[in-house]
Simulated scan of single mutants.
Amino acid sequence: MDYREEMKRLREELNENAYRYYVLDEPTMSDYDYDMKNRRLQQLEQEHPEEIVPDSPTQRVGDKLKDGFSPYRHEVPLESLQDVFTAGEVEDFCHRMEESLDGNAAYSLEPKVDGLSVALEYRDGVFVSGGTRGDGRVGEDVTENLRTVRSIPMTLPEKLPRLIVRGEVYMARSVFEEINRRREIEGKPLMANPRNAAAGSLRQLDPKIAAERRLDIRIFNLQLAQGRSFATHSETLDYLESQHFSVIPHKTLLTANACLEEIHDINERRMSYPYDMDGAVIKIDRLSDRESLGSTVKCPKWAIAYKYPPEQKPSKVLDIVVQVGRTGVLTPKAVLAPVHLAGTTVQSATLHNQDYIAEKDVRV
């Protein structure tokens, strides 16, 4: 395939999925497939910069505003993170940090919650407003829906003139499963996965619906604090915990090996957390180091997100049925014993690859 055709196809697929993921909350591909296609497009754009177009998904960060919400302008931008997928890329990042900081790097590492990123603002210790991330600079004002999230404190012990924090709104797996059980009994369509359930609930125009969904939050960054100063990211999280926020668990580490071990340990423990996660975030801990390192146009240079590979779980083929497509094409489909995987319940799989079927000896 000509590289121009491949780039065009990738742009169309990624933009279509982004619309369904962020606006309709109905994703058409897995996060892993999206990441791999996005990385391929980035590679092609690096090789052929003359082919970069304004509507490429690599040229924007975030999602579009949904009708019905007022714009929410972030005084401190909510930056995205560079994704990495291998241990070698983690080691490369740590090596760059060591070089840039004269061998004196310290890291803060935490789980990456798979939810919806928001900013919360407090004035004189009182919650006044909150918004979704949007494109990092302008999001949606969802203040009234955020008021229904019981883990968000409405007042703080210390009455700073102004405080802005960033967190990830999510729906606990137990709540998601309970809501779906109820929807099944009522004959309503089931929610796809906790991430989309959380995003759809927070962006309901009726706050009563958001309240019924029992959303939760983990705070992972201090954006602004008037009247307070801190030396490290870890200090800010400890302070926010003292202010009654539900803070992300975190560890301070000094080497790439220690980071890789913790990434592995988090993955081993991932089902013990109440929320779904899709990776781990590594950040430089000292705030002065972050300032000296700075950011690119889209991402801070002092942080990365390690994305876990797709989950794998065994299931059982209960039946094989044949679907007739619009053009008369016949496609066999395996009916599976339901299994919870990557935040959703998988009950079927298309058997379109005859070589794979023969190699794995797929049968009832």
Rank of each mutant, 00 (worst) to 15 (best):
M1H: 15
R96E: 12
E178L: 14
T148W: 01
M7R: 09
E311V: 08
P49R: 09
H95K: 15
S30W: 09
T236H: 04
L78T: 11
V149N: 09
P57V: 03
A342M: 12
T155F: 04
E16C: 02
M7L: 13
Q312S: 14
T327V: 10
P57I: 02
K112D: 09
L10M: 07
K8T: 14
P314K: 13
G167C: 03
Y3D: 05
R183P: 08
E79P: 00
R203N: 06
I209M: 10
A87R: 12
T350L: 14
A192W: 02
R363Y: 06
T58H: 13
G167H: 09
T148R: 14
H244D: 15
R181D: 14
L260S: 11
S229P: 00
L287E: 08
Q226H: 13
R286D: 06
L318V: 09
E241Y: 05
I320L: 09
S288H: 07
E168G: 00
A258K: 11
V281F: 09
P157W: 07
E26I: 06
I152E: 01
P49W: 08
N145V: 08
A87L: 10
D141S: 09
R228F: 05
G68S: 10
A303L: 04
K208W: 06
G103T: 04
H340K: 11
K64R: 14
A106P: 00
L65Q: 13
T350P: 01
S295F: 12
V335M: 15
A258C: 01
D285R: 10
K316N: 05
R270S: 14
